[in-house]
């Protein structure tokens, strides 16, 4: 969509639980629109943001739209660098098995399905942030 120019590294930092406020939903909307610009995109989930990726979400009791299935589409938009803060998970009694199994197809490897989520510690997260051109915090 954008003409020429170098690709920039975008990191979307998701810090909040999915339904207590609108930040998670509107962050996802930016990520999906941004995918059309073919930038180098990473997502980080820290603090209560890790709940956004929890599997088996149901919003029946609160009358809000369950937008969690949309995260499964990220792989189709070539968004496959999803970093989850390990400490944030552990502090909430969660493990990788509690999260949705987000995957992408590697076309350079016979379309093998590969996991998109990586667990990172705070030092790795800091290094990741250091590498970015644009950090959007939600």
């Amino acid at each position: 969509m954008e003409e020429g120019g170098a690709t920039k590294k975008f990191l979307y930092v998701n810090r909040r639980a999915p339904y207590g406020s609108i930040y998670a939903l509107e962050s996802l909307e930016v990520v999906l629109i941004g995918a059309a610009f073919e930038q180098d995109v990473s997502l980080a989930f820290i603090d209560d943001g890790v709940y956004q990726l929890k599997k088996g979400q149901s919003t029946d009791g609160i009358g809000m739209k369950n937008f969690s299935p949309t995260y499964n589409a990220l792989g189709d938009y070539d968004i496959n660098k999803i970093y989850v803060d390990k400490d944030s998970l552990e502090e909430r009694g969660l493990t990788l098995d509690d999260l949705m199994n987000l995957t992408w197809e590697d076309e350079t490897d016979n379309y093998a399905e590969k996991p998109s989520i990586s667990l990172v510690n705070s030092e790795e997260l800091a290094a990741l942030m250091e590498q970015q051109d644009v950090v959007l915090s939600f």
């Binding site: 969509m1 954008e2 120019g5 920039k8 975008f10 909307e29 930016v30 629109i33 941004g34 059309a36 610009f37 930038q39 051109d133 644009v134 950090v135 959007l136 915090s137």
Partner: peptide, 16 residues
């Protein structure tokens, strides 16, 4: 929202 992404691409710094 494309206008936000474009600002990220075109500006030297995007301040949130």
């Amino acid at each position: 929202l494309g206008q936000l992404i474009e600002a990220g691409i075109q500006a030297e710094r995007l301040v949130v």
